[in-house]
Design a protein around this nucleic acid. Sequence first.
DNA 1: TGCGGCGCAGCAAGCGCTTTCTAAACGATA
DNA 2: TATCGTTTAGAAAGCGCTTGCTGCGCCGCA
Lengths: 348, 348
Amino acid sequence: MTVTLADVAARAQVSPATVSRVLNGNYPVAASTRERVLKAVDDLDYVLNGPASALAAATSDLVGILVNDIADPFFGIMAGAIQSEIGGPGGRAGGERLAVVCNTGGAPERELTYLTLLQRQRAAAVVLTGGAMEDAAHQAAVAAKLRKLAEAGTRVVLCGRPPAPDTGAIALTFDNRGGGRELTDHLIGLGHRRLGYIAGPQERTTTRHRLEGHRAALTAHGIEEDPRWTVHGRYDRQSGYEATLELLRRDPGLTAVVAANDSVALGACAALRDSGLRIPDDVSVAGFDDLPFSIDAVPALTTVRLPLAEAGARAGRIAMGREEEPPGGIAMVRGELMVRGSSGGPRP
Amino acid sequence: MTVTLADVAARAQVSPATVSRVLNGNYPVAASTRERVLKAVDDLDYVLNGPASALAAATSDLVGILVNDIADPFFGIMAGAIQSEIGGPGGRAGGERLAVVCNTGGAPERELTYLTLLQRQRAAAVVLTGGAMEDAAHQAAVAAKLRKLAEAGTRVVLCGRPPAPDTGAIALTFDNRGGGRELTDHLIGLGHRRLGYIAGPQERTTTRHRLEGHRAALTAHGIEEDPRWTVHGRYDRQSGYEATLELLRRDPGLTAVVAANDSVALGACAALRDSGLRIPDDVSVAGFDDLPFSIDAVPALTTVRLPLAEAGARAGRIAMGREEEPPGGIAMVRGELMVRGSSGGPRP
DNA sequence: TGCGGCGCAGCAAGCGCTTTCTAAACGATA
DNA sequence: TATCGTTTAGAAAGCGCTTGCTGCGCCGCA
């Protein structure tokens, strides 16, 4: 029924071993033989059996990419960049690898299950993107899994995620703290003294680091933070909308709102507009990430650009062993402050 | 070194066959035995070898999802919805399947290669999303692949893509033509008579269908189209920006611009603003898809909402055999006109 | 002419799992 | 007590491929 290596071998009048070697190209085969085999492959429309090959060779050509939310361009951009370097079709010929994007939805148990599934498939490499959960038990479980993956020869790379010590994983970490700090510095520099902050979900490293940066800036400028100025929410637009209304309720005197990311900032803008406030005349707004749509907000969003595509590409190359690992296995990727129309001096 | 089924069997004092049966749960095993096995699995931290299992059982738990551009939320939303139904972790227990998202980047050869890779992995199902290429040779090649996949027992579902006759593939097709028609009807109803159209890439079904709908509306209202009113570009913001400037150059008298999708529309808005034109007072703008950010444009974008998540979820269920196929294997998914601030009557 | 070396192809032993078939043990039935 | 059916476990034959090792023929050198 299905064509096997043996069928090809028979048709080409060689042994299965020879066919295998032609296909894998890592053993000397006479040109005439190779041609005959290739012709047979073509004639028979033969497709290698991946599982059988993976079993025999004890490695597969699968590369896993874990993302928190595939519908979010933040992850989509990184995933796309990683994948383009992984090879897959379109990469350099020969090393055809199947880059598989796995959507964890931000759920710890899903993350773990995907890791197991990938381990089960004997993945060649795994790239974890985005912030990590801060739950200690979960972090330990993930670390254990990563260690096991590394032991089994799977390359593990973290992209936009804090390092995981003692797991053998290479980390390309975003400087969320530094970016948050710079952003708030900018706002304070404009004269703002009452700044609301819409943070992401509580238990995420990204959330914490950005918030820490924000607070560091406040402290550095001698501004004492009012606990009412911080609201936690999700990393989406609606959350930003609701959080902004809440902030305005708590302190109508705020002159700036810093959002956990650009989507949240967009929601914040909508809430401000709906409250009859002008941006930036009445309230300044700032985002984070600089996703493509940020520049189309009106006014355009002041934000911190994260080099998502570049970082992803680099992570992909490292995962494929095509780029040297950063010293110590850890690299800090910095963001860049993008000052645009949504931030201005506070109303007098 | 790595723990195998045999190791577990030895520790549980049963045969490998029994362990396999416990793990697959499709054969009667005494409760006490099962427990012993499960304990051994746990003790040894055993992880099933996917390839070996796939080889022996002649099926794998991989499900492929092909997308044109993973960084585009249009695809991200569909992919996320499909995946959530596929199961994967988080779905119903037991049927743990690895949903793998493959990014074709819109390149025909990549699409084909991914299909081959998936065939090689003996994928359980494949979902192709988004518009198809209109190149005849390529379409034939894809059709042949799909037929082969279907023959091998892989379920093939098309989501937001035109049917592929005689391939056995189930199609959930978006009514791009109808949506385009409705959108332009709306604009004409507002009084517009000179409408620019920014189309997507030439050789895509989506592009063609949306454009056909647009033209059908013009024709229905007795408006003769000026060839200068249509510009082709890519499905992204920048393309929309450039195309709009081009349209304005060709005919400064345009009172409305219809874009191939929301990203293009955003670019169009930016170009209009930069040209000193107000939306919708001077020029109305319309998009397509109703992606999340569309409502945050200022003014909010008039567009056609495509039920991406719903369609994706349905495609996922069909792929898993959990929902009945539509009659004839084809279903038309309609969009919904969303009238918002970016469209208004033409300037007098 | 003889022999070591080399280039290339084949043999065969798995890789770790699933599954069919067989068998043991036990209670129920006659 | 003898027979039979039922339930549960094991033996073993692959699934389709890779790869270490063996072997064959040929060239070049002594």
